[in-house]
Computed example of a mutant assay.
Amino acid sequence: MGTAVKTARTSPASWDAFSDVDAFVDEVLAELGAMEADGAKPTRSGPKPALTGTALRKAIMAVWCLCVCGMQWRAIGQLCDIPFSTLFTLFSRWTRLGLWRRLLDRLRRTWRLVCDDAAEPTAVVIDSRSCCSAPSCFGRGFDGGKKINGVKVHLGVDKYGIPLAIDVSPANVHDTRGIVPVLRELSGKGFRGSALGDLGYRGKRLAKAGQKLGITVKAIARGRDGKFLPAGICWVVERSFSWIANYRRLNTIFDRTKEHLVAFIEIAFVSILSRRLNRLVASEISA
């Protein structure tokens, strides 16, 4: 993977989380239909009929609002006239069935193909970000370097900044240990290539763990005298963290399970990609 990034052309517009929300809802509905066709059963039978039509669209938009606005489950239930227990049950079931991961992988491949690139990358960029968390969060630790008491998000992204693997851990877990689950997830998806990171990923133990998984971990200096310096494509992961910082639920973590936090990170990137694909200029679509 080279350093050049040739992105597809999109219509110019300032960043607005509320623009093209329908594109996000349409992508989720399409993936739900694909899961039902595959036999994944995204909805279950019960005494109450499953949400359909407008009610289902409203429920999907409510989950999106939770991620963007950082609202509470009970508050969004009051606003959309759907019991918060129903919304949480839907979100939990979709997360357990892997809806958000499936959708993110599909949109990521679509975006790469639109950019005249291969569907799968040959190298990824890895990094972590410490976030404050509430005492009720699933795990907590103190990051002495950044003076943050909370959790740490570990990402492995391609050159367009879209994650292939996500994991979270308490903030006191060192990067060389916290990134191992990300490497395992990448290896499980068939990735074989280089993982580029900052100097925090140096060490023989991490290098050997990567070799066993078929991944070469390369530590590259990204700064000098306390200043950040872009090195090749390694800067793209910093941009990815800045993107998800616009989603308020991902700034202070309240989720009580790691799976739900990862799901909200995936929802943030699904929102970004669905908006991009919806804004592709006509020439790119016809090509």
Results as ranks from 00 to 15, higher is better:
residue 1 M to T: 07
residue 2 G to V: 07
residue 3 T to P: 00
residue 4 A to C: 01
residue 6 K to S: 03
residue 8 A to F: 11
residue 11 S to Y: 10
residue 12 P to V: 11
residue 18 F to N: 12
residue 21 V to H: 11
residue 24 F to M: 00
residue 27 E to R: 05
residue 28 V to N: 04
residue 31 E to I: 09
residue 32 L to F: 02
residue 33 G to S: 12
residue 40 A to D: 09
residue 40 A to R: 10
residue 43 T to M: 06
residue 43 T to C: 00
residue 46 G to R: 06
residue 47 P to C: 11
residue 56 L to Q: 03
residue 56 L to G: 01
residue 59 A to G: 05
residue 59 A to K: 05
residue 60 I to A: 04
residue 60 I to D: 03
residue 65 C to N: 07
residue 66 L to Y: 00
residue 71 M to A: 13
residue 73 W to C: 13
residue 77 G to F: 08
residue 81 D to C: 02
residue 84 F to H: 13
residue 85 S to V: 03
residue 85 S to P: 00
residue 85 S to H: 02
residue 86 T to N: 03
residue 90 L to W: 12
residue 92 S to G: 02
residue 93 R to E: 00
residue 96 R to K: 12
residue 97 L to A: 05
residue 100 W to R: 00
residue 101 R to A: 15
residue 107 L to H: 06
residue 108 R to T: 15
residue 108 R to H: 06
residue 109 R to E: 15
residue 113 L to N: 10
residue 114 V to M: 08
residue 115 C to G: 06
residue 116 D to K: 07
residue 119 A to H: 08
residue 121 P to E: 06
residue 121 P to C: 09
residue 122 T to D: 11
residue 124 V to I: 14
residue 126 I to L: 15
residue 127 D to A: 06
residue 128 S to H: 07
residue 128 S to Q: 06
residue 129 R to W: 01
residue 134 A to M: 12
residue 134 A to T: 14
residue 135 P to N: 04
residue 138 F to Q: 14
residue 139 G to A: 15
residue 141 G to E: 02
residue 148 I to L: 03
residue 149 N to C: 10
residue 149 N to E: 13
residue 149 N to F: 10
residue 150 G to L: 08
residue 151 V to K: 11
residue 152 K to C: 03
residue 152 K to H: 05
residue 153 V to I: 15
residue 153 V to S: 07
residue 157 V to T: 15
residue 159 K to R: 15
residue 165 A to P: 09
residue 171 A to K: 07
residue 172 N to H: 12
residue 175 D to N: 04
residue 184 R to L: 08
residue 186 L to T: 07
residue 188 G to H: 05
residue 194 S to M: 06
residue 195 A to M: 11
residue 196 L to F: 14
residue 199 L to Q: 13
residue 200 G to T: 06
residue 201 Y to H: 01
residue 204 K to M: 02
residue 207 A to S: 15
residue 209 A to M: 11
residue 210 G to A: 10
residue 211 Q to L: 12
residue 213 L to I: 09
residue 219 A to S: 13
residue 221 A to S: 13
residue 222 R to H: 01
residue 225 D to Y: 04
residue 228 F to S: 07
residue 231 A to L: 00
residue 233 I to K: 09
residue 237 V to T: 11
residue 238 E to R: 04
residue 240 S to R: 08
residue 243 W to K: 06
residue 244 I to G: 11
residue 245 A to W: 10
residue 249 R to T: 01
residue 249 R to G: 00
residue 251 N to D: 01
residue 253 I to C: 05
residue 253 I to S: 05
residue 253 I to L: 09
residue 253 I to T: 07
residue 257 T to S: 15
residue 259 E to G: 08
residue 259 E to F: 08
residue 260 H to G: 07
residue 263 A to D: 02
residue 264 F to Q: 14
residue 273 L to K: 03
residue 273 L to Q: 05
residue 278 N to H: 14
residue 279 R to H: 12
residue 279 R to G: 12
residue 283 S to L: 12
residue 283 S to E: 15
residue 284 E to F: 01
